[in-house]
């Protein structure tokens, strides 16, 4: 089917970026969040990004104006969803809130609209099953920041129809993105494999095989990884890392996903990475 109008729910880090990418590619976008200030913040971030692009001559003023003219902000879910061909949900990572929203959308949206969730941690199947048309439900997992990251994981369930999948794959391409298809499963492709990469590195530190710096250096120098696992953990924040790690372990229930002891202990000790000045490495103290 042809997508013309897209509703993006959630104007946060991911939502506003997704709305911008869609609008830049010519789609009409309704950007919805639950409070006026969230919607305004999202729209002003988009404006700032567009202004920056014009300044750096990546975009003409006309293109920027046209892009922002295609985005309509609202706090009203009905307003945002009643006439769209596709909803992309990028709200808080809470399965119950998400399910409630999709139940509501089921009442509001046109019969043939596609529902997509940008979740990285919840089951697409579980969300799909609260709607009347699980065949038109799909996962669309973007990476941060959406404006710059080229890959999108397209997540299918046993109920997703081929037509829905084809529509989404085409949409990704029209947005200038590269889709990778994955069946609904914890962590999808990227986060699941990253967990192994992190855990194996951290486990070696726990076993006393090598220090963080030596492991990071080895992976960067020998195999051209841009950053090592320990540096990346520190950058993202060890508390956030631990939550993601625990989620994978809980969902996949296999030993290789068990949060490494060094990660657990650092979090307990309040050494959360760059933001606290200390994680696997020491950073200049923040005052």
């Amino acid at each position: 089917m042809e997508i013309r109008r897209i509703g993006v729910l959630g104007a946060g880090t991911m939502g506003h970026g997704i709305a911008q990418v869609c609008a830049q590619s010519g789609y009409q976008v309704n950007l919805q969040d639950i409070k006026d200030e969230f919607v305004e913040a999202g729209i002003s971030k988009i404006q700032k990004f567009l202004d920056g692009s014009v300044e750096r001559k990546r975009m003409t003023q006309d293109e920027a104006d046209l892009t922002s003219s295609r985005i309509k902000g609202t706090t009203d879910l009905r307003e945002a969803a009643k006439d769209v061909d596709l909803v992309i949900e990028a709200i808080v990572e809470d399965i119950n809130i998400k399910k409630d929203v999709f139940k509501e959308l089921d009442q509001i949206c046109p019969e043939d609209a596609i529902f997509a969730s940008n979740t990285s941690a919840q089951s697409i199947t579980e969300m799909a099953m609260v709607t009347k048309h699980p065949d038109r439900f799909i996962g669309m997992h973007w990476f941060n920041p959406p404006q710059l990251m080229r890959g999108i994981e397209v997540i299918v369930t046993d109920k997703t129809s081929q037509e829905t999948l084809d529509t989404m794959v085409n949409l990704c391409k029209k947005l200038g993105k590269e889709p990778g298809i994955c069946k609904d499963s914890p962590g999808f492709i990227v986060n699941r494999l990253l967990q192994i990469w992190y855990n194996e590195s951290l486990n070696m530190f726990d076993e006393g095989v090598a220090d963080p710096q030596d492991i990071d250096t080895a992976l960067k120098v020998a195999y051209n990884f841009r950053m090592g696992p320990f540096e990346l953990r520190d950058l993202v924040g060890l508390d956030v890392a631990l939550v993601v790690s625990e989620t994978h372990y809980r969902e996949l229930m296999r030993e290789q996903f068990k949060p490494p002891r060094c990660l657990v202990m650092k979090v307990k000790a309040g050494d959360l990475g760059r933001k606290t000045g200390r994680g696997f490495y020491e950073y200049e103290s923040k005052t």
């Binding site: 994955c182 990227v190 494999l193 192994i196 696992p229 290789q256």
Partner: peptide, 30 residues
């Protein structure tokens, strides 16, 4: 580290979660 990642990726491929090409592609671009 690499062998552990390969093992998990091979499991994902054999259980038909994703293709070899898509798994490689996503790890590179994402």
């Amino acid at each position: 580290v690499i062998a552990s990642v390969v093992n998990e990726a091979a499991l994902m491929y054999t259980t038909k979660l994703a293709t070899v090409e898509d798994i490689d592609k996503m790890m590179k671009i994402c």
